[in-house]
Design a protein around this nucleic acid. Sequence first.
DNA 1: GTATGAACACACTGTTCATAA
DNA 2: TTATGAACAGTGTGTTCATAC
Lengths: 120, 120
Amino acid sequence: MSKKKSAYLIKQRAFLKVFLLAEIEKGQSYGLQLKKIIRHKFEAYGFEPDHSEIYRSLKELTRDGYLKKTEELVEGADLKTVEVYRIKDKDKVKAYKELVKPDLDRSRDLLRKAIDEIYS
Amino acid sequence: MSKKKSAYLIKQRAFLKVFLLAEIEKGQSYGLQLKKIIRHKFEAYGFEPDHSEIYRSLKELTRDGYLKKTEELVEGADLKTVEVYRIKDKDKVKAYKELVKPDLDRSRDLLRKAIDEIYS
DNA sequence: GTATGAACACACTGTTCATAA
DNA sequence: TTATGAACAGTGTGTTCATAC
């Protein structure tokens, strides 16, 4: 007997994780660089998660086998290193994206419906 | 120096409050009845907030002067009463709805943008 | 069972602290 | 300063408990 529980909008963590995967698919990156990418892409919407939330998401994605992390020297700098993330398992990433898509669509549609109901 | 802080999606409480106002604008109602209305309108999206969350929202809206609450006898029943809510200040409600709309639109657009970025 | 509301508990996430280059 | 990560702390919300009809 599965008691279907209520779902409001997709959680920030899940939102961030799928976005980070899509971004890292385009090319390797690291924590604060991803934060900047998010800032630029979503600045019109006032969204820029805290660095801790990004690190937490990357950590989970690595722990769960979607990403691999390597410490690499920063070009130009002396001994400065950054933690670079790459896709570890393409198929797994693809499956994850498809898994999350319904929840993203549902969230968008829920807002659409509410806006229509409230302001029509 | 106002440090503009990040905003993810609109909070459930704010979402609920504006929806409840719009619903009560259509006619008086009470807690669990509003819960049922929400269930039916959003069942396609799996959204049905807990009764406590609805009572909390109604309490805030009453405290802040948007709604008025009266205890009324349930028709047909003996001495059973319900807490009926009505709009207290139409202009204030209208202003509140306009205040919240940008955040609803922003949330919907943020999801739109993300879905487009991730799955394009 | 329906209805209301408070009390409790915890998940999520923002802030701060620590460390290093 | 940039970069990473852990630790701390508060907020929001789901679960449970209490009361009444």
